[in-house]
Design a protein around this nucleic acid. Structure first.
Lengths: 239, 239
DNA sequence: AGTCAATGGATCGTTGGTAGACCATTGGAG
DNA sequence: CTCCAATGGTCTACCAACGATCCATTGACT
């Protein structure tokens, strides 16, 4: 008998070449708001080491992002590679096309995200946070609430990532970042409404509040409701 | 400010070379019980394609596993690479040494597993399962309950993987398999008691029962309790 | 004004992995 | 008994990625 587990365990050991994956990773940093417009990326030598990629490959990736308008490099001491103040607008690929390409991938990603993010909210609430972590959460929440429409997705992602961070699990954080990237591509195909944002902000506040209060069950439930909102939105648009 | 998100997003794009990762993947298939003793692996050409590695690399990996006593290859039509009836005993690395090596990694993995597996249990219960899926779950449960002490970990893993499978999310299944591998290494350092197994079997039954009954909250709760058992066990032994 | 440390930019030899073709073996089908 | 399809086993040419080294630029500090 052939079970789906076969597919899980015999899936590709690597997707794409180092160059492509490096580009993806840098885009992740930018699009999830980990580095913000004006920020400097780590120096090439450092970054290459951290990404475990040769400097040549990293530079090729940076070059690609430069051409695409995401970053710019400056030479000399106090130089570096900087995220552009004006980021390129995401191409609004027709939702249907994306939906077709993703196919089962949509449910796949939504189910995984649900597990990761509700799990993260709960775990974050269980944990005793340092005051630095609490401040970080509050700051991300405030930034998101104050974000302009065009920046909203970035700050929103950053907040969700922050919640994963404060669980203290690096793996959980990475996984959350990855699945979020997959979903953001879809979300970019959907118009963002001011009304949705307000609702979203309220939910964010409720989630963070529950986490800071150390109430796992409430945090979990608040996150669950929040996620189900976007899930419904996505499913509705991508049919 | 440097946040942990930096580490998450600037983590290595690839860990190890294709050879090492291929070995890991094949070991995963064997140790998580996806392929069982006596089973034949897919033909080299097929498997290489699925893993997205060259046949040469795959063969090197298989060779390594042959030397380690996990598999054996036979030529000719109706030949292939077969999992040995007698698997090598896991080396009982002293718990302390493993704990030291893992360090934070233990909590990292436990938190991630919690999110993934409780999420999986819930998602599985929400979903309308096909009768084939239900049978698969029941079979894995029965196999585990009937497993000998030396095989227990494999069947246990297989059951947990089966629960992830029936969520329908391939990504969730892969992630579960990966984190399980990390934890199994630790579990191998801990003596397995008959008493623990009985308790474990009861909990497994409760989880599967809740899933088949379509009761997400109960499934989730049952899984949570089950996991907290092994988590406590691990934390206790690895101090 | 000069220095220099830190940064991006460029080049080259080495190597691990790949793709593809071909060989060797086996056992069921005709 | 012969054939042959499917499998593991081997070889070779090629290339992407790496590691290492050196160059070019910049601007804060002395």
């Amino acid at each position: 008998m052939v079970t789906p587990a076969d597919d899980a365990v015999f899936r590709p050991v690597r997707t794409g070449n180092p160059f492509e994956e490096t580009v993806e990773r840098l885009l992740q940093a930018i699009k999830l708001g980990v580095v913000r417009p004006g920020d400097r990326l780590p120096a090439e030598r450092d970054l290459a080491t951290r990404l475990n990629v040769s400097r040549v490959t990293l530079r090729e990736a940076i070059h690609a992002l430069t051409e695409a308008g995401f970053v710019e490099s400056r030479r000399g001491r106090y130089g570096g590679t900087f995220v552009n103040a004006q980021l390129p607008k995401p191409r609004r690929t027709p939702a249907k096309r994306i939906a077709r390409e993703l196919g089962d991938g949509l449910d796949d990603a939504l189910i995984l995200r649900d597990a990761l993010e509700t799990g993260a909210a709960e775990a974050a609430a269980v944990r005793a946070l340092t005051s630095a972590e609490e401040d970080h959460l509050r700051k991300c929440l405030a930034d998101t609430a104050a974000a302009k429409l065009t920046d909203y997705r970035r700050f929103d992602s950053r907040l969700h990532l922050a919640i994963a961070e404060v669980t203290g699990s690096a793996s959980l954080t990475s996984a959350t970042a990855d699945v979020r990237m997959r979903l953001n591509e879809l979300l970019d195909a959907i118009p963002l409404l001011e009304r949705n944002i307000e609702h979203s902000n309220d939910q964010h506040a409720a989630i963070v509040d529950a986490i800071l209060a150390g109430d796992p069950e409430r945090a979990r439930q608040a996150m669950k409701e929040h996620l189900s909102g976007t899930a419904t939105l996505l499913r509705a648009f991508l049919v």
